[in-house]
Design a protein around this nucleic acid. Structure first.
Lengths: 205, 205
DNA sequence: TAAAAAAATGAACGCTGTTCAGAAATAAAA
DNA sequence: TTTTATTTCTGAACAGCGTTCATTTTTTTA
């Protein structure tokens, strides 16, 4: 192991440390309320150092958004053992909602905040690989459903987008306080009640 | 007409002028990119004056969010002439998407940004009247559908929430660049293609 | 041990939302 | 009309933000 190798490892370690500190503060006090100075303080480095390892704030937010997709992946892990695509589709939406509710700041970062997309626009590879890969998992599952005779007369891609929008919409309204705003008769379970109506609809499809 | 009356009118006029200037800049260069100084410059008043008429930035954003709901209302105007509730429900979602796409910054403000909800939390009346009223229009329509024998075995409130989430989710993904991120085979029409899948589903319900 | 390279620093810049003592304009009173 | 009182408006000043970069500190190489 050369010195250069060790240095490279140390660089990665400090980058990871910054991201870890950032994530901690994001969850503790919200992304908007967290400053670069906060992050630097949290890990006992100076502001300048943060900028040695990250071009700007959107770079931190983008890297953290990628970590979020890894975490969402772990929520999906079990799902692909399920052979029946309809059953998998049902459980997938459920897992998605569960992830969003248990990781609200991370979900917001992944699917709502502008920063990660702004970072992509500035960078070489403009593609949103994380989003595309996750969407593909829905698409593949729905394609299997169609191949098994479900969703007659439907098209894979727009149908997948519709399903994604449905669960995303619920999570988004919840996280951005629009469900608290509209007082539901059963506010604590509205997401799952809503998702249940969708399950009833696709039951016989 | 007393002097006090005229002054009250002038106060309202200046408040409206500030909102008008703010809205113009929001649409022109985005809400996040617009500062109080920008707004003051736009209407040829000083920063201080803006703060005489509005407690803080969230107050401006909340008032503008209310104006947005009035505008959404005008998109809904024609709908309640439609007697068939299923037909009205279909057109309503369409109008909702149309509004979102034609007024992206306003839609974001109404259904996504934290500011209007933060303003509500600070104010006396914490209820989100605008959201509740709009949601009620969906609820009433779906209730009519159920009374006519549609949506058997479904519950009005969670079903309405599901429908709202579906269209909101699509608009939200589009406005926050998540559809541009995932490259669809037909990117320009994905919202309407997605909505069409939903229409196919509720066709025989 | 000295020179070179790499890493970390924090003061400084221009921006933000917000405040508030004082100036300017208007209304009321003399 | 002139004086006083009231209302309206102003913009410098403040603290905090993301970001930069000349300088210092640490580490590696000679």
């Amino acid at each position: 192991m050369s010195v250069a190798d060790r240095k490279a490892r140390e660089k990665e370690a400090l980058k990871a440390l910054i991201l870890k500190g950032a994530k901690k503060l994001f969850i503790e006090k919200g992304i908007e309320q967290t400053t670069i100075r906060n992050i630097a303080d949290e890990i006992d480095y100076s502001v300048g150092t943060v900028y040695v390892y990250f071009k700007d704030k959107t770079a931190i937010l983008h890297d953290l958004h990628s970590i979020g997709f890894q975490e969402l992946g772990s929520y999906f892990q079990e799902l692909f053992k399920i052979k029946d695509p309809m059953e998998r589709l049902r459980k997938m939406g459920f897992a998605y909602i569960k992830f969003a509710l248990e990781n609200q700041e991370m979900y917001d970062l992944m699917f709502n905040l502008k920063a990660p997309m702004e970072f992509l626009e500035k960078s070489e590879n403009e593609d949103w690989d994380e989003g595309a890969a996750t969407f593909n998992r829905v698409k593949v599952t729905i394609e299997e459903c169609i191949n098994k005779g479900h969703f007659k007369g439907h098209n894979v891609e727009p149908l997948s987008f519709m399903v994604w929008s449905l669960v995303h919409g619920m999570c988004c309204l919840e996280i951005r306080q629009r469900t608290k705003g509209v007082k539901f008769s059963n506010p604590d379970t509205i997401l799952f009640d809503g998702y249940n109506e969708y399950l009833k609809i696709i039951e016989k499809m």
